[in-house]
Design a protein around this nucleic acid. Structure first.
Lengths: 346, 346
DNA sequence: TTTAGCACTCATGGGAGGAGAGTGCAAATT
DNA sequence: AATTTGCACTCTCCTCCCATGAGTGCTAAA
């Protein structure tokens, strides 16, 4: 693992720091000046030459400085870079934007993305994972003479509702319907509600026959509701502020990644929890010069979404990771305290 | 109004058609060839020169062809252009994408935007207008021993719910709470729930005192829920396919318009219903070379959202307007049949 | 009123040449 | 053996310059 000498590491760190700042190839002379070690540029050149062999550095052409490869950036993130402490103002900004509204999880997530984009100056992504819902119990409640409200408590604890239109629906009929639903549909996902199930339901709800069809429609709708994946992107213009995307075709490549919502969701909810996940240009991310850092959000031991940042390969990882971590743990906590599961993910 | 001779109109139409196609300044020679009238390029030049005086045409520099101004494009949209008939395939595509899911209005809107973007090849926007909600009636329903479900029927007919945690909540307490809520909070918007109101509520719900605070929180949350404006943008990369946005700074300008969500919502829900609304670069839209066409969506006589397309000034208006019209009327109908209002907007 | 003819204007694209940054290597230094 | 100095070499990038060509505006003729 330790294939780099200490000096090489120092050189690499210095080079990457500068590259992150400027976005341009870094030359040996700069590093020789920036490093506390008093080494000549020639020595640095030799070291760099070796690191190029080892796959850490690249040069755009013979006579330009060096640029870190994906491998080098990973090494940097894993150990070389300093830790970033969010400043008080930044923490305040985050909290303000975040606590302002604690409604739905989805809203919370996109709110977080907005804040994240604001403080990091990169484009932020929030992703809501579709869940395969199943019902734990049903209730039907009268609203007025021509409609009633159907409640479905899901196995994951949340309660969903739909209004169902039905001309004649007295308390008795609703009770019967309720019973039939609880008897036939609990524990099933949308896919599992097949014809035999429906027939059985119709049979046991014989008295409330007229209500079955609209009710089923509502149930189906609820079970499928969370199947909608949701991707929110905040601060797209930020992306276009970085010179690597001044070329529209590059920008388009990156943005098209963000439009492949389905792929994005499965990718971002697939990572390891509790640590920053890093995806760089080549690796499945079909875009040049871009890099994504993300944290999955955990609730009740399951990944329910993710929050991330997309930017140039040379993004300010220390700041991004610090902010992301703050949000991801905050959101995960929020979710775990809110839900009915007391398990701890970590 | 009729400040243009017939021939001028023909010339203008031909010029704009070509400009929409190519995106480049159009010269007199091209028009002379394209027009059925056999006129020489010199005649066309004279006409164009006059139209430049009248503010219909512009020239980028002395020696380039002419480009239509915003004024000319409006004239074009208002009368010169042909009507576009959506092809069967296009209609099918629209319907397929649209009917696939008829859940929430918000989802429907963004679904529509997606379809719109797909068939027009421009970026589509959907906007949900925040509504000032007020309650018509409340109900509280037991879920399990440690929480109950609060239902709020709004004046606009929709029913919203929240789960409220409360350690001891028997049926009697809930009944009392329900009564108090119905007595004190009906007809009020989020802003109108002030301290005196709260005090009165606490008084009348004295028996269920412990429930008041969490309940109020839930009510407040529901009343404010729809205040969230929602903007969905579909097909951003499409925008970047047009040469006018190859310059990233231009692209940024346009995209930043889309990020000013608040301004966007009020702008797009402010237009006239039942007809295409056209906003061109200069007019309040802070971006060069872009143009927005949108239709507000009406439900129960009120504007509840809007759907639109943003693209280069020279977009294919006939196609865009045809598709938009299809969706806007479709969505408005959908909304009006679904809601409980029978008023007709037009 | 329309057209033909012509001078004039500008954006565009293609070299040519020079400056500057950075490398790599060989010889000198520690 | 590791560093450093010195130097030739390689590229990119910028700028200046010129030719090209599309399109106009104007004048004089039809």
């Amino acid at each position: 693992m330790h294939e780099l000498s200490d000096r090489k590491k120092r050189i690499l760190k210095s080079l990457i720091d500068e590259y992150i700042r400027s976005g341009e190839p870094v030359g040996s002379k700069y590093i020789s000046g920036a490093l506390p070690d008093s080494v000549s540029s020639a020595t640095v050149r030799n070291e760099m030459s070796e690191m190029t062999e080892l796959g850490y550095l690249d040069k755009p052409h013979t006579s330009a400085g060096r640029v870190p490869t994906a491998k080098a950036l990973k090494t940097y993130v894993d150990g070389l870079m300093e830790e970033y402490k969010l400043s008080l103002e930044e923490l305040e900004l985050l909290n303000e934007l975040l606590e302002y509204k604690v409604g739905e999880f989805g809203k919370l997530l996109s709110q977080a993305a907005r804040a994240l984009s604001a403080i990091t100056n990169y484009t932020a992504i929030s992703v809501l994972k579709p869940a395969a819902l199943s019902a734990e119990s049903f209730r039907a409640v009268t609203v007025d003479d021509e409609s009633f409200l159907l409640l479905m408590k899901c196995t994951d604890g949340q309660v969903m509702t739909r209004t169902v239109k039905a001309s004649q629906s007295d308390e008795l009929l609703l009770k019967a319907l309720e019973k039939a639903l609880n008897g036939c549909l609990t524990g099933l996902t949308a896919e599992q509600v097949t014809l035999p199930v429906i027939l059985r339901l119709e049979e046991s709800a014989a008295e409330a026959k007229a209500l079955v069809s609209p009710t089923l429609r509502a149930v189906y709708d609820m079970l499928g509701a969370e199947a909608e994946e949701d991707v929110q992107v905040e601060g797209i213009t930020k992306l276009l502020s970085y010179p690597e995307f001044f070329d529209v075709s590059k920008a388009k490549q990156v943005l098209s990644v963000l439009e492949q919502k389905h792929a994005l969701v499965s990718r971002l909810t697939g990572g390891e929890a509790g640590k920053p996940n890093l995806v760089m240009s080549g690796e499945g991310l079909e875009s040049t010069d871009a890099s994504v850092v993300y944290y999955p959000i955990i609730a009740g031991g399951k990944t329910v979404g993710a929050i991330g940042v997309i930017g140039p390969k040379r993004m300010d990882y220390k700041k991004v990771i610090a902010s992301l971590e703050y949000f991801a743990t905050g959101l995960s906590e929020e979710m775990n305290s809110k839900g009915d599961t007391d398990e701890d993910g970590e």
